[in-house]
Amino acid sequence: MKRDLRFYLKLMFYTFKISAFTFGGGYVIVTLMKKQFVDELGWIDEKEMLDFTAMSQSSPGSIAVNASVLVGNKVGGVVGSIVALVGTVLPPLIILTVISHFYTAFIKINAVRYLLLGMQSGVSAVICDAVYTMFKTVWKESRWIALITSVIAFVLVAVLSVNVIIIIIACIILGIILYGRGEKKA
């Protein structure tokens, strides 16, 4: 990948586009980034995207910004991380600055609510699709352990509202115990 001006403009465009359409929190943007940078462009691989997600969740700041800085850093070094940061921050920055002047009217616009109600279906479908392909990746890597860990993590967070950091720490320890001494050579 040639890191010229064209490349950085592309990176800026993609991060801007993804950020502008991220409704519904950090994990939504992660799935959109996976679609764009893993599936469409092949700039990073799926395992890296999962690693970046875990790192983004465990570090201060929003998942969206952290994840795009990590992607930018990986594909374009320090300049890339700054470009990705700016691309991600600009849409909310512009929108909120504009809206701050007439927000009381904005909140009451029914059309925006209807649009968002519909978009929830699209976002859910995108997440389900991404979860399906991501699961295939971890299944290939660690089989039944992957199935058990992902289901337990899902139940703990979705049903029991356990703190995510606890799950991350537990899985790091589990991973080190199970695989930390290196792969056995066949």
């Binding site: 994990y27 999962l50 997600t53 699961f135 971890v138 992902s150 337990i152 993590a153 080190i176």
Partner: peptide
């Protein structure tokens, strides 16, 4: 060890 958990979180 962490990757499957991330899939669960998403």
């Amino acid at each position: 060890g962490l990757r499957p958990a991330v899939v669960g979180l998403i």
